[in-house]
């Protein structure tokens, strides 16, 4: 793939306007708790994510990472605690309102819209599409404007597909994609919403190493321009190498957090997690 396409993808596909001017700590979570029946999935999680960082969230299976994502993005309502985004309390807000504010997540198990083509999946993502109002899409005099808007989006979407190396799948039904391709689609789609903060739940699971590197480069490029990422990953080397800040969860609690070096030297972590797995 040529350098040019990549360039266009970074500048064109993703918010040419840059991230909204957020506080130094756009996302903050305080004393979050969630129980499912008898299980305490998240037990008083407190942490912040700094602007323009790539923060890693690690922990053994069942530690409560995905549940934390669900609580932050409004999928589940926390039993206690508070979520603050860009200085605003968003606890218990509807998922779509949170997403519109610029806090967007991907799912651990890719949730492609199976009966729609890859292209349709992608076209869904851009925010504030005027044609989402029924009357604008239907009324004869107003539809041309929707069409113009869509023509521009189509180009942007193709560029993004190019970047993720899935342009050859554009016309395919998303339900027919392989696991890795679904992950890519999900990530590409999330990026197209032009979020300020992205929560990625194991985005690289099943993605080939070359592409993984390119995605990471892209993430870093965006991060440098002020976008913020919170990343769940089981690949310890990747987290230690790529993240400025690492949060370790265990049995619903935050075990420790800090720079990769600090985390690595923490005995509790080594015992609970690194010791067993690395």
């Amino acid at each position: 793939m040529s350098e040019g396409v990549e360039e266009r993808a970074t500048t064109g596909a993703l918010g040419a306007d840059g991230p909204a001017d957020l506080a130094a700590e756009p996302l903050r979570v305080d004393g979050l708790e969630k129980q499912f029946g008898g299980i305490t999935a998240v037990d008083g999680a407190t942490f912040g994510v700094e602007r323009g960082t790539l923060t890693g969230l690690i922990g053994p299976n069942g530690a409560g990472k995905s549940t934390t994502f669900n609580l932050v993005t409004g999928v589940h309502r926390p039993d206690a605690g508070q979520v603050t985004f860009a200085g605003e309390d968003i606890t218990g807000m509807d998922p779509h309102r949170i997403a519109r504010k610029g806090l967007v997540r991907t799912f651990q198990i890719a949730r492609e819209l199976g009966g729609m083509t890859v292209m349709e999946n992608m076209m869904l993502a851009p925010q504030r599409q005027s044609g989402e109002a029924l009357w604008r899409s239907v009324t004869p005099g107003l539809r041309p404007r929707v069409r113009r808007e869509e023509s521009d989006l189509v180009e942007q979407v193709w560029d993004t597909l190019d970047f993720f190396d899935i342009e050859h799948l554009a016309e395919e039904e998303a339900g027919g994609l392989s696991g890795g391709q679904r992950k890519l689609l999900e990530l590409a789609r999330a990026l197209l919403t032009d979020p300020d903060v992205l929560l990625l739940d194991e985005p690289f699971a099943g993605v080939n190493p070359t592409l993984e590197r390119r995605l990471l480069d892209q993430i870093h490029a965006l991060r440098e321009r002020g976008y913020t990422f919170l990343l769940v990953e089981h690949d310890m080397d990747l987290i230690m190498e790529q993240c400025e800040h690492v949060i370790v969860m265990h049995q619903g609690r935050i075990l420790t957090q800090g720079s990769p070096a600090e985390v690595r030297s923490n005995e509790a972590v080594v015992e609970a997690y690194l010791g067993g797995e690395v």
């Binding site: 993005t73 999928v75 509807d94 998922p95 779509h96 997403a99 967007v104 997540r105 799912f107 949730r111 819209l113 199976g114 009966g115 729609m116 349709e120 076209m123 869904l124 993502a125 599409q129 005027s130 044609g131 989402e132 109002a133 029924l134 899409s137 929707v146 869509e150 789609r189 999330a190 919403t193």
Partner: peptide
Amino acid sequence: PFGRVLKAIREDEQVAGAL
């Protein structure tokens, strides 16, 4: 775009919300 959102809801409402 309206119909696209409807289709997305048909496929997976939660994803449409997350977007």
